[in-house]
């Protein structure tokens, strides 16, 4: 392996600094006792306590988490069952068509998803609010779950299932004792991705949320449009913290699973 030149190292460091500087900048000023992102007066936690004392913000935070967990759960169940079904489709043309349909929501711009779901919910008569946001989040997460679970299923040798069936396992046993344990890492990864997609989403939620319901992203947007408020900085500090924990947890789970998988 050749050593990187000074110039190369400088360039890479520059890229990393640019990537992280804005995030650190936000968090840094969340501790500012002043009221803007310009002069750092003195260190304070007051913006954080503002966040926790603002009951409206707390409700929004809980909404966001509930929507993320529920939508991730729904999409993981439907996506996992769907993937198990997809690998069982014999007709190659049909399978490819289903896979293409699966990927449409992944490549579609958020604005299109949001606008078309808005039309859909209005036509069907679903009130805009919690239900519409939850349904949309589950809907755009399902294809991601499928993409995470499908490779695991394709990796699995069909002789495992034949063996189980020969040894007298019922179809139910095959599913719960052979297939699901084997694809567990994919399911976890899918659930986790669905969770982060839901937490991150702004555009789709912005379209399908009504007046009474808001998630963190939508709330930050309206706060940011009103101008700089260090409460948003405090929120970003919290979000950064949670994101880091989730990312580390995710890599820990994935690594742990691949390692124990290798031992077997």
């Amino acid at each position: 392996m050749e050593k990187l030149s000074k110039k190369a190292k400088l360039y890479l460091s520059f890229v990393f600094v640019v990537l992280y500087a804005p995030i650190l900048f936000l968090v840094f000023y969340s501790f500012n006792s002043g009221d803007s992102m310009t002069n750092f007066k003195s260190f304070t936690f007051s913006h954080y306590s503002d966040v926790f004392n603002d009951s409206r913000l707390m409700v929004i935070l809980i909404n966001t988490i509930v929507v993320a967990l529920l939508s991730a759960l729904i999409s993981t169940i439907i996506g996992t069952l769907g993937s198990i079904g997809i690998v069982a489709i014999r007709n190659r043309k049909l399978r490819n068509m289903v896979l293409s349909l699966n990927n449409i929501l992944i490549v579609s711009p958020d604005v299109i998803i949001g606008a078309s779901f808005l039309i859909l919910f209005t036509m069907v008569g679903i009130k805009l609010g919690f239900a519409s946001v939850l349904l949309s989040h589950a809907a755009f997460s399902i294809p991601i779950v499928v993409l995470m679970v499908l490779p695991k299923l394709q990796e699995m040798s069909s002789s495992l299932i034949d063996a189980a069936l020969d040894l007298g396992a019922s179809r139910r046993d095959v599913l719960t004792r052979v297939i699901l344990p084997f694809i567990k890492p994919g399911i976890f990864a899918g659930f986790f991705m669905a969770l982060t997609y839901s937490l991150d989403d702004f555009a789709v939620t912005f379209f399908v949320t009504g007046n009474g319901f808001s998630t963190l992203s939508v709330e930050i947007y309206s706060m940011a449009r009103a101008g700089v408020s260090l409460t948003v900085n405090a929120i970003s500090g919290l979000v950064l913290f949670v994101t880091l924990i989730l990312v580390l947890g995710y890599y820990f789970i994935i690594n742990h699973q691949t390692r124990t998988g290798a031992h077997k």
């Binding site: 992102m37 702004f202 970003s236 990312v247």
Partner: peptide, 26 residues
């Protein structure tokens, strides 16, 4: 992974950061 982590931080917050960074007194 270090390159990817910023992409997981809420888009709105990253955009909001630049309001401060590019601001008149930023």
């Amino acid at each position: 992974i270090l390159i990817i982590i910023p992409s997981w931080i809420n888009l709105l917050l990253k955009t909001y950061a630049f309001i401060g960074i590019f601001g008149n007194k930023g």
